[in-house]
């Protein structure tokens, strides 16, 4: 565990907390993509199956349980409790266009052809693109509430911090995982446009509004 890794995990946790607070306090999930949340739940469930096979540390198991349970809670809030506020018409990204290529890619490019390993690889690939329905929703409505922008910023920062962690681990421990590094870079690049808007607009007190 190094500082970048810890900061990345905390940023990830913060993103999830911001999201739940936003939904709970405003009693609304307007502006949020339920499809991205379904993809994230799928990511955590397929990645953390090793919860039952391998014990790494209390920290590791605790975070895995938190990520799985909070993502399921978010889906429950969006699709059941606050369903009336869910922006279904704007959330029209076709997630099968992301899931199917990730399934194929994980079957072809993986480090070991076993069930757990292929599912882990699938989750890494899927995570890198899971935010696309949310970014698509923002671009479709042309704006995002500040709290949604903070959520996206924390979520995007998490993988960017992981990249620093991977660089550190490569030099300090000789440890590297090419699949995760490649997908993590793709994931971070997808946020770049948003990061730019966040720094130039939201941090200056303006609403995140896309140019017409």
């Amino acid at each position: 565990m190094n500082l970048f890794r810890l900061a990345g995990d905390l940023s990830h946790l913060l993103a999830i907390i911001i999201l739940l607070i936003k939904i709970w306090k405003t009693r609304s999930c307007a502006g949020l993509s339920g499809k991205s949340q379904i993809l994230f739940a799928l990511v955590y469930i397929t990645r953390y199956l090793d919860l039952v096979t391998t014990y790494i540390s209390l920290y590791n198991s605790f975070m895995k349980v938190i990520f799985i349970s909070t993502s399921l809670a978010t889906i429950y809030l969006m699709y059941s409790k606050f369903r009336a506020t869910y922006d279904k018409n704007h959330d029209s990204f076709r997630i099968e266009f992301l899931i199917i290529p990730c399934v194929i890619l994980s079957l072809v490019i993986n480090s070991n052809f076993t069930v757990l390993e292929v599912l882990w690889t699938f989750s890494i690939y899927l995570e890198s693109v899971a935010i696309l329905p949310q970014l698509f929703l923002v671009s479709k409505t042309g704006e995002a509430e500040s709290i949604t922008s903070h959520y996206l910023f924390a979520l995007g920062s998490y993988r960017a911090l992981y990249i620093l962690n991977w660089i550190y681990r490569y030099y300090a421990e000789g440890h590297y995982e090419l699949i995760a590094i490649f997908a993590g870079c793709v994931q971070t690049i997808l946020y770049c446009d948003f990061f730019y808007l966040y720094v130039t607009k939201v941090l200056k007190g303006k609403k995140l509004q896309l140019p017409a």
Binding site: H12, T54, I56, S57, N60, M63, S111, H175, E177
Partner: peptide, 10 residues
């Protein structure tokens, strides 16, 4: 035989 690196990251 390939030895898998333990996945300690999240």
């Amino acid at each position: 035989e390939l030895k898998l690196v333990q996945k300690d990251e999240l």
